[in-house]
């Protein structure tokens, strides 16, 4: 770790201003990626702005059509929330499969979404559930939010305050974990909204993406068979020592098929 300035502001405005004005300011939510990166000297922010003392960033609100989760809500709280379990059981289950108990008690939804890790779980739910990411300055549709490898539409000093998930008729998430890290080697999140479907895939490319061909097939036939033969081109898929692009492409179809089977019940 290098030396850095630590801030613990009381308000969002102060947090935003401090982050923007710093030479290289970074927001700290749960710190589950930030702190290890700093310890390895891979990240070296000049200023770290901790959101822990800002009121109103934590908690779960259930509306008639949406579930709103405050940015600083821990994965454990989403996983164990009876309200989330009832409204969007797939989301509660997804939160319960992130990392390990220590990570789930520290990590936050805002931190995970803002980080846009290519293998993170939450981005699949955000995109799959057509969520809206609310920040201190605006609301961003999921389709516009994730822009690349660790890249999002967030601007300097912009801080996520909450994520609004649309409540689907049915949804499911299936992930195949990377054997060492437990991150998603491939994860597929499927959701049904009336006659429309969304199917988001994480772990396979630089950032989460939708499989529109599968979504269309599901609109015609909501069953695993509808997606079982739909494959993805290997060309721009990730390849590493744990998983070749060909195997990843195969897993995309298998995880999508299994998610659909689970959602269709």
């Amino acid at each position: 770790m290098y030396e850095f300035n630590y801030h613990r502001p009381k308000t969002l405005d102060e947090a935003s201003r401090t982050t923007k004005e710093a030479e290289d300011g970074q927001v700290l939510a749960g710190g589950m990626t930030m702190i290890p990166s700093m310890k390895l000297r891979l990240a070296s922010p000049s200023d770290l702005v901790d959101l822990a003392d800002i009121d109103g960033l934590k908690g779960i609100t259930i509306g008639p059509d949406t579930v709103t989760i405050g940015a600083m809500t821990r994965h454990h709280d989403v996983h164990t929330s009876p309200d989330v379990q009832k409204a969007i059981p797939a989301l509660a289950a997804l939160a319960g499969g992130i990392g390990d108990p220590s990570v789930r008690h520290r990590g936050t939804i805002g931190g995970s979404v803002a980080n846009s890790d290519p293998a993170a779980d939450y981005p699949a739910a955000v995109l799959g559930l057509d969520a809206t990411v609310e920040t201190n300055t605006r609301k961003i549709a999921a389709d516009d939010f994730f822009t690349g490898l660790f890249e999002t539409a967030l601007e300097s000093g912009e801080i996520i305050t909450a994520v609004h998930f649309k409540i689907p008729d049915a949804a499911a998430y299936m992930k195949f974990p990377q054997p060492a890290s437990g991150f998603a080697m491939v994860g597929a999140f499927v959701a049904k909204f009336g006659g429309e479907f969304r199917l988001a895939v994480t772990g396979a490319k630089d950032c989460v993406f939708r499989m529109t061909e599968m979504e269309q097939a599901l609109a015609a036939n909501f069953s695993a068979d509808a997606v079982a033969e739909i494959t993805i081109a290997e060309d721009d898929l990730l390849a590493d020592i744990h998983c070749g692009a060909d195997y990843r492409a195969h897993l995309v179809t298998v995880m999508a098929k299994r998610a659909v089977a689970l959602a269709a019940g």
Binding site: P179, A180, S181, F183, I241
Partner: peptide, 11 residues
């Protein structure tokens, strides 16, 4: 060494 951490070394 490509498997130099628990992210890549499968304990």
């Amino acid at each position: 060494l490509l498997t130099g951490s628990f992210m890549d070394y499968g304990m």
